[in-house]
C-alpha cells in the first residue's frame, strides 16, 4: 500500500526486481556448488546405510555401494536377536539425553538471565570462573568424579551419566551471548509494571529465546546421546548402558566384527538425532519467520 503512494514507486520496484534477478542467476551457481558439497558430506552415510543392508558376506567388497542395491534387513534383525539388549540401551540413551537437555537448557537460561540482565557483586568473577570449565579436557576430571560417584553409590546408574553432563559452561556462555543480543525494552517495561524477576524471565525473556534454545537443545542432546567417555567409565551393566559404548561392544576384541550389524546399529543410533534436528530446525525457521512478521 505504501509502495503505491510513493512518488518513485515504479522505478524503485523495477530496480529491486532487477537486482533480485541478478542474484537469482548467482543463486543457481551457488546452489549447484552447495549441492556438490552436500553430496560429499552425505557419501559416508550413504555407504553406512547401504552396507548395513548388504549381507555380511558382501560388506567389505570394492567398489563400495552408496545406494542400497537390495533391502536385506537381516543385520537389523540380528540386533534384536543378539544377546545385547539394543532396545534397553536405546531407551537409556534417550532418557539420559532428554533429562540432560531439559535441565541444562533451563539452568543455563536462568544463569544467562542473571548474567545479562541483573547487576550483582561478583557476577563478572563468577562468569569468568565458569569459562575455566570450557577448557577442561573431560578425561582429566574423570578420576575424581569416579570416586565421588562411587562414594554416593551412583556408579552403574543412569544418574552417573546425567549428573556430570549437567555442568555445561558452554550452554551458559551461549545463552548469555544470545540473551545480550535481545532487546530489553519489554523486560524493562514489565519491571516498571511491577512484575517479579521470575515472571519477567518466564514470561518474556524465555519466549524470546526460541531459536537459540532450539539450536542449543540440538547441541546438548547430541553431545549427551553420543557421549562415549562417561558410560565407558561409569556403567557396567547393560541395564544402564547407552548406545555408543554398547554398540562398540559388538566388536570382538580382535576385530572379528560383523560390519553390517555394526553399521545397522550405527544407522539406528543416528535416526532419533535426525528427528530431533528436523523438528528443531523447523522450529528455528518458524520462530525466525514469526519475529520477521512482528517487525
Amino acid at each position: 500500500m505504501t509502495m503505491m503512494t510513493h512518488p518513485h514507486a515504479d522505478t524503485l520496484t523495477a530496480r529491486f526486481y532487477r537486482a533480485t534477478r541478478v542474484i537469482h542467476w548467482r543463486n543457481w551457481t551457488v546452489m549447484v556448488l552447495l549441492g556438490i558439497g552436500a553430496v560429499f558430506m552425505l557419501l559416508p552415510f550413504m555407504w553406512t546405510f547401504s552396507t548395513s543392508l548388504r549381507p555380511i558376506s558382501e560388506a567389505y567388497r570394492l567398489p563400495p555401494s552408496f545406494l542400497p542395491d537390495r533391502l536385506d534387513f537381516s543385520s537389523y534383525a540380528r540386533l534384536e536377536d543378539g544377546p545385547i539388549p539394543f532396545l534397553t540401551m536405546y531407551w537409556n540413551s534417550f532418557v539420559v539425553a532428554a533429562v540432560t537437555t531439559v535441565v541444562v537448557i533451563f539452568t543455563s537460561a536462568m544463569a544467562a538471565f542473571a548474567f545479562s540482565r541483573l547487576r550483582f557483586p561478583g557476577s563478572n568473577v563468577l562468569f569468568a570462573s565458569m569459562l575455566v570449565g570450557l577448557m577442561v579436557p573431560p578425561a582429566l576430571v574423570l578420576i575424581p568424579l569416579f570416586f565421588g560417584m562411587a562414594a554416593v553409590g551412583l556408579i552403574d546408574t543412569l544418574w552417573s551419566l546425567i549428573l556430570p553432563a549437567l555442568a555445561n559452561p558452554l550452554a551458559v556462555l551461549m545463552m548469555r551471548e544470545f540473551m545480550r543480543s535481545q532487546p530489553r525494552e519489554y523486560e524493562e517495561s514489565a519491571f516498571v509494571d511491577g512484575a517479579s524477576y521470575w515472571t519477567i524471565f518466564w514470561r518474556i525473556s524465555l519466549p524470546q529465546m526460541g531459536p537459540p534454545i532450539a539450536a542449543l537443545s540440538i547441541i546438548v542432546f547430541t553431545t549427551s546421546w553420543n557421549n562415549f567417555l562417561l558410560p565407558l567409565v561409569f556403567v557396567r551393566s547393560f541395564e544402564a548402558m547407552t548406545l555408543p559404548v554398547g554398540i562398540l561392544s559388538l566388536f570382538g576384541s580382535y576385530g572379528a566384527e560383523e560390519l553390517s550389524v555394526i553399521l545397522a546399529a550405527v544407522t539406528l543410533s543416528i535416526l532419533p538425532l535426525l528427528v530431533v534436528f528436523l523438528i528443531a530446525q523447523r522450529f528455528i525457521v518458524e520462530s525466525i519467520a514469526s519475529t520477521g512478521v512482528k517487525k
Partner: peptide, 11 residues
C-alpha cells in the same frame, strides 16, 4: 550373579 561386561575397544 551380577554380571558386568566391559567393552574392549581395538584390543
Amino acid at each position: 550373579i551380577e554380571t558386568q561386561y566391559i567393552p574392549i575397544v581395538s584390543g
